[in-house]
Amino acid sequence: MANRERILAAAEAVFGEHGAAGSTEDVARRAEVGIATVFRHFPTKAALVEAALVRHFDLLNEQASALAAHSDPGQAFRDLLRSMIEGGATKLTLAAQLPDGQFPPSVRQEADRLRATVEVLLDRAVRSGAIRRDVGADEVYLLIRGLAQASATTPSAPRTISRAIEVVIAGLSA
């Protein structure tokens, strides 16, 4: 199980950095395993990309679930929003490598589960007065995708991305 997790973390890093130019050999090197170990767990590059996307959403789901219990709904929502934007470029780069450009059912299930939790966190933040009442999940997801797409196509300094996230959060704040 440790090898599988290392391979998935390496795949997210390699494909997030290099897109389609990343290779399973690069993943094996980064994970410090042999290429046979990669293929034993993931028989194709597509299977590896799919599993990396599932892991990406699963980790966000774990974070979102933990934040749902946070005593400050506004801060919980802002923390999740920041994580989603910061990881969004990698997610988009991974998703661009899917064979048909659509999320497979396993990825769609995790993405839908995350959206449901985002909606709960957003509702709590709105009801607490931290986030504007006229903001819905559709607007939030559009903003996340916009910053993620900009980061994926025109890499920016981490400080610039952080400031852009602060601008988005300020715009959403009540």
Rank of each mutant, 00 (worst) to 15 (best):
residue 87 G to R: 09
residue 150 A to G: 11
residue 53 L to A: 06
residue 64 A to I: 03
residue 107 V to T: 11
residue 74 G to N: 10
residue 139 E to A: 14
residue 11 A to V: 11
residue 105 P to F: 08
residue 138 D to Q: 09
residue 47 A to H: 15
residue 7 I to N: 04
residue 95 A to Y: 07
residue 22 G to D: 14
residue 77 F to A: 03
residue 115 R to C: 04
residue 104 P to E: 11
residue 87 G to E: 12
residue 146 G to R: 11
residue 112 D to G: 01
residue 122 L to N: 05
residue 155 P to D: 13
residue 16 G to K: 03
residue 161 I to P: 00
residue 50 E to H: 08
residue 79 D to E: 14
residue 82 R to Q: 04
residue 134 D to E: 12
residue 23 S to E: 13
residue 13 A to N: 11
residue 153 T to Y: 10
residue 149 Q to D: 11
residue 76 A to F: 12
residue 128 S to N: 05
residue 59 L to A: 14
residue 41 H to F: 02
residue 14 V to K: 01
residue 149 Q to C: 04
residue 139 E to G: 12
residue 167 V to E: 14
residue 43 P to E: 12
residue 39 F to T: 04
residue 83 S to F: 04
residue 64 A to H: 02
residue 74 G to R: 12
residue 108 R to F: 00
residue 104 P to V: 14
residue 29 R to E: 12
residue 16 G to F: 07
residue 141 Y to Q: 15
residue 158 P to A: 10
residue 161 I to N: 04
residue 121 L to C: 09
residue 143 L to H: 06
residue 49 V to E: 14
residue 125 A to M: 01
residue 26 D to Y: 01
residue 166 E to P: 03
residue 86 E to L: 10
residue 81 L to D: 00
residue 36 A to G: 12
residue 54 V to F: 01
residue 19 G to A: 09
residue 56 H to F: 07
residue 75 Q to C: 01
residue 81 L to A: 04
residue 123 D to M: 00
residue 102 Q to I: 02
residue 58 D to W: 00
residue 92 L to E: 05
residue 171 G to T: 11
residue 13 A to C: 07
residue 129 G to W: 02
residue 94 L to E: 09
residue 88 G to V: 04
residue 30 R to G: 00
residue 60 L to G: 13
residue 125 A to D: 06
residue 18 H to P: 01
residue 163 R to V: 15
residue 161 I to T: 14
residue 11 A to N: 08
residue 156 S to I: 13
residue 64 A to T: 08
residue 7 I to P: 05
residue 127 R to F: 07
residue 32 E to R: 13
residue 130 A to T: 08
residue 93 T to V: 12
residue 69 A to G: 12
residue 44 T to R: 12
residue 109 Q to C: 08
residue 126 V to M: 01
residue 106 S to L: 10
residue 83 S to Y: 01
residue 46 A to F: 09
residue 137 A to E: 00
residue 169 I to H: 08
residue 47 A to D: 15
residue 52 A to T: 14
